[in-house]
């Protein structure tokens, strides 16, 4: 009985706080994506010739987001029924977009206008990862192009 109460309390806390932090995070993501739209992020490996006189430097953005208890329960149930794990999709979507935003913020501070050769890396961290409770890290990195005064 006590186990069930603990389970339900953790579930309710996970759902409540998880939804709250997720909606807050998405609001922040929407605003910042809009604000940083001018820093173009492209995956191509070689910049066009007109950028050959630009300075270039590595920029990166990294984020770690924890899985809440409710999401682990839903994902664990999904393991039985199969199908799309929506609970984790939102987690990774947030993490990817946040990592890009942080990378863009670094680029903006350096005065860059474009980041090319952008790549992602995703990994799971956390001591309780084996139990489904863990955190996900997303790292985005690329080469920022900074216009030289004499290149303009």
């Amino acid at each position: 009985m006590i186990e069930l109460i603990v389970f339900l309390v953790l579930l309710a806390l996970g759902y409540g706080f998880g939804r709250l932090s997720e909606s807050r995070h998405y609001r922040s993501i929407f605003q910042r994506e809009q604000a940083l739209r001018s820093i173009a992020v492209v995956p191509i490996k070689i910049p066009p010739p007109e950028y050959l006189r630009h300075n270039s430097t590595l920029v990166s953005g990294s984020v770690v987001i924890s899985v809440d208890y409710f999401k682990t329960v839903v994902a664990s149930l999904r393991n039985i029924f199969g199908g799309r794990v929506g609970a984790y999709e939102s987690l990774l979507d947030r993490a990817r977009r946040e990592a890009i935003l942080r990378m863009q913020e670094e680029a903006r501070e350096l005065g860059a206008e474009t980041i090319y050769n952008v790549k992602y890396e995703t990994s799971r961290i956390g001591e309780n990862a084996a139990k489904g409770l863990g955190s996900v890290e997303v790292l985005a990195y690329g080469t920022a192009l900074i216009a030289c005064p004499d290149s303009k």
Partner: peptide, 17 residues
């Protein structure tokens, strides 16, 4: 070829519904 001047605004709900 040139880089775009800004990132396109993609519709929501592609990677997370």
């Amino acid at each position: 070829m040139s880089f775009p001047k800004e990132n396109p605004q993609l519709p929501e709900g592609i990677n997370n519904q």
